[in-house]
C-alpha cells in the first residue's frame, strides 16, 4: 500500500529531475540562452545570494501572509455569499453571469484605483488578492450546493432534520469537493494577483524580488524567486488538500 502511495511521488520527482537535467544540458550547450533561462544548478546556487541580498525567506512569508489573509477574506465572504445565491434562486440566476464575467476580467489592471483607495499598503495587496479569490469560491459554492443529490436531501427530510443539520450534515459534505475546486482556483488567482501587484508597484514580498532581479538581469536570481512563489502555491495546494480530506475523509 505504501509503495503504491509513494510511486507517483517518485515518478513525479524523477520526471522533474530529468527535465532539469535536460534543461541544464540545453543551456550548457547553448541551445537555450542563459540570459533567458538559467541552468537549474545556477538557480540553486542563486538562493543563498538572493537570501543574503533581498531576504528571500522573510519576503516568502510576506507573500504567504498576504495570500493567506486575502484567501481567508475570500472564504469568509465567498462561502456565505455562495450559499445565499443557492438559497435565493432569483439572485443566483441574476448574478452568476455577472460573477463569471467579473472572474474573466483582468482585475489586476485596476491597481491604480486600489492604490488611490488603500494607498501603497498591504491593504491594497489583500484587496486585490481577495477579488479574484472570492469569485470562484462564490460560484463553486453555489454550484456545489445545487449539485447535491435530491435523494440525499429527501433522506434528510424523512428524518425530519433541522435546516441547520441539513446544511452541516448533508449539503456541505456533499458540496465540499466542488467548493474546494473553487477554493483551489481562487487561491491560485489570489496569489497571481498579489505577486503581480508586488511586481508592479514594487511593494511587498516575492513579486518585488522578482522585479528587482529581473531589472538587474540576474536570471538565476529571478528564477530562484519565482521558485519561491511556486513554493507558496504548493503550500496552499497541499494545505487545502489536507483540509478537504479532513472535512470529507471518504
Amino acid at each position: 500500500m505504501t509503495k503504491i502511495y509513494k510511486m507517483p511521488v517518485v515518478v513525479g520527482l524523477f520526471g522533474f529531475l530529468v527535465c532539469a537535467m535536460l534543461l541544464e544540458l540545453a543551456v550548457g550547450y547553448g541551445y537555450v540562452m542563459h540570459l533567458v533561462v538559467p541552468r537549474p544548478s545556477d538557480t540553486i546556487i542563486a538562493f543563498p545570494e538572493v537570501q543574503a541580498d533581498m531576504d528571500l525567506i522573510g519576503n516568502f512569508f510576506v507573500t504567504l501572509g498576504m495570500t493567506a489573509a486575502a484567501t481567508a477574506l475570500a472564504l469568509l465572504i465567498g462561502i456565505p455569499f455562495g450559499y445565499f445565491l443557492y438559497r435565493n434562486t432569483r439572485y443566483g440566476i441574476a448574478y452568476e453571469g455577472w460573477l463569471a464575467a467579473a472572474f474573466a476580467a483582468p482585475t489586476v489592471l485596476l491597481y491604480p484605483l486600489f492604490l488611490v483607495i488603500f494607498g501603497r499598503s498591504h491593504a491594497t495587496l489583500i484587496a486585490m488578492g481577495f477579488i479574484p479569490g472570492a469569485i470562484p469560491i462564490i460560484i463553486q459554492t453555489r454550484q456545489g450546493l445545487l449539485g447535491v443529490s435530491q435523494t440525499l436531501q429527501n433522506v434528510g427530510r424523512s428524518f425530519n432534520v433541522s435546516e441547520r443539520d441539513m446544511f452541516w450534515k448533508i449539503l456541505l459534505p456533499s458540496a465540499v469537493p466542488t467548493i474546494f475546486t473553487g477554493i483551489r482556483i481562487g487561491v491560485m488567482y489570489t496569489l497571481v494577483n498579489i505577486v503581480a501587484i508586488e511586481y508592479l508597484i514594487d511593494f511587498g514580498g516575492l513579486g518585488r524580488i522578482v522585479s528587482e532581479m529581473y531589472f538587474r538581469f540576474d536570471t538565476p536570481g529571478t528564477y530562484a524567486s519565482i521558485i519561491a512563489v511556486i513554493f507558496v502555491s504548493v503550500l496552499f495546494y497541499w494545505g487545502f488538500g489536507r483540509v478537504e480530506k479532513w472535512l470529507r475523509p471518504v
Binding site: P112, L115, V116, R120, L200, I201, D202
Partner: peptide, 10 residues
Amino acid sequence: VGGPSGSRTQ
C-alpha cells in the same frame, strides 16, 4: 510610484 500616469494618480 510607477510610470507618469500612476505617479499622477497617487
